[in-house]
């Protein structure tokens, strides 16, 4: 292991933050083909009044991968994803989509790019059915009447594709579902709309084990179908069980963007709590 000391992230020539040699890379630096992230946000600054919450924060996400976004309470995770979802304006920062600079100045811009954010307090309509919720605002129309059969079939297909079996009938009102089932519906909804980036903000918080596992596996399946998934979680098992990459925020700064296979549990915890890694191995 070439552990040469603390890991201060450095900017590579493209401006991305990468972890330097403080993290175990196993052997000598590995050559990786230059892959363009699907979504690449860099240099994001954000202040609320006098308080600067994000300092040149960065996040790269790749198709077919789950990127875990980790950091302590208040590190700025939710703020960062709200910025890239167009819900909060950023004070500074660049967003590249498939390598091209784009502007995300509102939720519509994000939706047009195929960025779907499932907030922790995501909104579903309790009195509508599962299928209706999944098509909310985008009802399939056949002639002028809503084609319910078609909607229900596609909703059921999306749930099945993610191996979500516990929801039961797509005609059930969402109000009768438990937390994990609601979360699953929100995730499946993201899939239906041809989303390309799906951001899940603490999807397993407050869920029981069985539902949390199902949500994690659904997130994994979304990525396996080629979507780029961002998973915000405080639970290291969640992170390590499904993530391909880990991005750590510390006090509003991105302190590491690494592959999950290159780091240990202890190192990620250190990144979260101190923003750096000491060679412990």
């Amino acid at each position: 292991m070439n552990l040469t000391g603390r890991a201060r992230p450095v900017a590579d020539p493209a401006g991305r933050l990468v972890a330097r040699s403080g993290l175990p890379t196993g052997a000598s630096p590995r050559w990786e083909p230059p892959v363009t992230p699907l979504l690449d946000v860099r240099g994001v600054d954000k202040s609320f009044g006098p308080v600067q919450v994000l300092h040149e924060a960065a996040l790269s996400v790749h198709p077919g991968e789950v990127t875990a976004l980790v950091g302590d309470n208040g590190a700025g995770k939710s703020t960062l994803i709200k910025c890239l979802g167009g819900i909060l304006p950023m004070d500074a920062g660049d967003v590249l989509f498939e390598g091209r600079p784009v502007r995300v100045s509102g939720p519509r811009d994000a939706a047009e790019l195929g960025i779907e954010i499932v907030h922790q307090d995501f909104a579903l309509c309790d009195n509508l059915s599962v299928a209706e919720n999944m098509f909310l605002g985008r009802e399939r129309r056949r002639g002028l009447v809503l084609d319910e059969a078609d909607m229900e079939r596609r909703a059921a297909q999306a749930l099945a594709a993610l191996s979500i079996r516990t929801v039961g009938s797509v005609r059930r009102p969402v109000g009768s579902l438990a937390g994990g089932q609601r979360q699953s519906v929100a995730i499946a909804r993201a899939m239906l709309w041809g989303s390309r980036v799906v951001v899940l903000d603490e999807p397993t918080a407050s869920l029981g084990l069985a539902h949390a596992q199902q949500v994690l596996e659904a997130a994994r399946k979304l990525a396996d179908r080629g979507l780029a998934v961002v998973l915000i979680s405080h639970n290291m098992n969640d992170v390590f069980s499904v993530a391909d990459r880990i991005t750590a925020l510390f006090l509003g700064r991105t302190v590491a963007q690494v592959r999950a296979s290159e780091v240990t549990h202890t190192q990620v915890v250190e990144l979260i709590t101190s923003g750096r890694v000491t060679p412990t191995l």
Binding site: P24, T25, G26, A27, R30, Q213, L216, E217, R220, M236, N237, D238, V239, F240, S241, V242, A260, S261, E262, V263, T264, H265, T266, V268, L281
Partner: peptide, 27 residues
């Protein structure tokens, strides 16, 4: 799913980088 952090940590430390690069852990 309940101990993935331990499993992955061992993997990160005890395998050759080339061998683990593309390995997917799935349920």
């Amino acid at each position: 799913l309940g101990s993935a952090a331990q499993v992955r940590s061992r993997l990160a430390v005890q395998t050759l980088a080339a061998s683990r690069e593309r390995v997917k852990l799935r349920t």
